[in-house]
Simulated assay, not measured.
Amino acid sequence: MARTWKRLASTLMLALALTGLAAAQAQQAQQTPPGYTMPSTHMFDITSDGGDIYRIFVSFPATEMPADGYPVLYVLDGNAMFASFAEARRIQEYYEVGKGIVVGVGYPGDQAYDVRRLDDYTPLLVDPPPPNVRHLAKYKSGGQDKFLDFLTGKLRTEISRRYKINADRQSLFGHSLGGLVALHTLYTRPQAFHSIVAASPSLEWNDQSILKEEREFTARVLAGKVPRTSRLMVVVGDRDIDDEPGPAAAFMKRMDALAVHGLRSRFHRYADEGHMTVPVRAVPDTLRFAFEVH
Rank of each mutant, 00 (worst) to 15 (best):
G69Q: 10
G100N: 03
G143A: 13
L124T: 08
P129T: 05
H184E: 12
R215A: 15
R266N: 08
Q27R: 11
R162V: 01
G143R: 05
K225D: 09
P129I: 00
D149V: 12
P129A: 14
Q28P: 00
V221R: 06
S84A: 15
G274A: 13
K164L: 07
P190T: 11
K253M: 05
V234N: 04
Y113S: 12
P201K: 09
S40A: 14
A248G: 02
P71W: 01
E213N: 14
T157V: 04
S195H: 07
V133C: 04
G20R: 06
T11K: 09
R161C: 00
L222W: 05
L211Y: 04
A22R: 09
L232G: 09
R254L: 00
Y70R: 12
T41Y: 08
A112L: 15
R269L: 04
G106P: 01
R156T: 14
I196P: 03
V133Q: 12
P247W: 00
K164S: 12
E273D: 14
S84Q: 13
L118Q: 09
A62P: 01
A248V: 02
N132Y: 12
T286H: 08
T188N: 15
P130G: 02
G69E: 05
I159Q: 13
G246C: 00
G78F: 05
R281F: 10
T47A: 13
E158G: 05
H294V: 04
D243T: 07
K212D: 08
A9W: 02
Q30A: 15
V72M: 01
L180M: 07
G274S: 13
I196V: 06
E216H: 13
S195G: 12
S171Q: 10
S171C: 14
M13T: 08
L151I: 13
T152S: 07
V293Y: 09
V221N: 03
G100L: 06
F291C: 09
V293I: 13
Q92M: 08
L151H: 11
P128Y: 10
Q191Y: 13
L203R: 00
G262A: 08
Q92F: 05
W5K: 00
F251G: 00
R169G: 04
V221A: 08
P61Y: 04
T286P: 01
P123E: 09
